[in-house]
Amino acid sequence: MKNMLRIEELRVTVEGKEILKGVTLEVGAGEVHAVMGPNGSGKSTLAYVLAGREGYEVTGGRVLFLGQDLLAMEPEERAAAGLFLAMQYPVEIPGVSNMYFLRQAMNAVRKARGEPEIAAGAFMKMLREKARLVGIRDELLKRDVNTGFSGGEKKRNEILQLAMLEPKLAVLDETDSGLDIDALKAVAEAVNSLRGPDRAFLVITHYQRLLEHIEPDHVHVMVDGRIRRSGGKELALELERHGYEQFAAAAA
């Protein structure tokens, strides 16, 4: 197993409050890891710190992505290196067309990898194909990025970007929340079709539901800024039955 992401004793403070209190996690190429945990335990914080959002102060530990010091990189460098974050709350960008944005993003990432820009025809063909896969109507491609999209459409749009950009590591932050069962299946199917020996997934979720469709290799439970327990996919089922109280009690 090739090591892809290595998080060591990561400590993160937001506005003077420690949110991540020493997170250690290792993800190998080809693996799917699920991170579960109650609201406010720090899951999104972890995802954002990996992607390089501002406003987080790393006070300890380090993160290696394909051997590089991830935390020293700009967000766009992380994307170019093959990291992708499907956000819990995708941002609306009025005035920028979804299609143009996707093409810019693709070419930026390709350029950084030393690949040639994608030709207009090939891009359109790929876009149509992937849009069908995640169930995005053509009309949404022409609209402004996420603007006026329903919650479900925004999530599908995140997965469309994931499918187009073909990252090495995809972090999915509660992509399942707010999705009806059909959308959930479409998203899961798209993710499963992207699984492969060179690609890894870190699937953050609050519920076990998504994991019925995207089967994880490993499950981690995050409570109060720490990974409290790790195990196989059966851990998700156990959490579904007994909830997070056992860990909450331990954390208190």
Binding site: E76, A80, M87, V91, I93, A105, A108, Q161
Partner: peptide
């Protein structure tokens, strides 16, 4: 908007 800026950069667009 810093959120929009981050979103675009997280998709690979230079600052």
């Amino acid at each position: 908007d810093p959120e929009a800026l981050f979103y675009l950069r997280a998709r690979g667009l230079a600052r």
